[in-house]
């Protein structure tokens, strides 16, 4: 306990406590439990979302983050896709070709999604919120 204490005293906040560890592990595992999505489904969803987004912007694959999070019994898909470069109009294929109805894309694509997970509609315990792009 003393060495632990000294470690924290000198290393500051770099040392995570087991309490922080268990909380973050639980949040991830519960988000998956609640959404009831298989890893294969997550993977194929991830691939497709990346495909669509890459059509418009160049994504930095290094800092990519794609996870399910849970808050107040609602599950949200959190995708953090760092943008390296915005492709020019000409690079982007017209929407009609893709056959997918997409909501209007803002001029400046945001580099990250809100910290606060949004309510989703697949979770039967949470109210639906139709305003969000990437919610499950």
């Amino acid at each position: 306990m003393i060495s632990d204490f000294l470690e924290r005293l000198f290393l500051g906040q770099d040392v995570t406590t087991s309490r922080d560890d268990v909380k973050s592990r639980l949040k991830i595992v519960l988000a998956h439990d609640r959404a009831n999505l298989s890893p294969e489904l997550m993977e194929s969803m991830r691939r497709e979302i990346l495909e669509v987004v890459s059509r418009y912007v160049e994504i930095d694959t290094e800092g990519l983050n794609f996870s399910l999070e849970s808050d107040q019994r609602a599950t949200a898909l959190i995708a953090n896709l760092p943008i390296r470069r915005i492709k020019f109009e000409a690079d982007a294929p017209p929407l009609s070709e893709s056959g997918i109805e997409l909501p209007a894309v803002p001029d400046e694509p945001t580099q990250s999604f809100p910290d606060q997970p949004e309510r989703t509609s697949t979770d039967p315990r949470s109210p639906a919120n139709p305003d969000i792009d990437l919610s499950l």
Binding site: R19, D20, K27, L30
Partner: peptide, 19 residues
């Protein structure tokens, strides 16, 4: 153990389960 940050507190558990 909670004080030593080696166990979740009641609040931690309650926030996660949200009941």
């Amino acid at each position: 153990m909670v004080q030593a940050n080696d166990m979740m507190s009641v609040q931690d558990v309650q926030e996660i389960l949200a009941i």
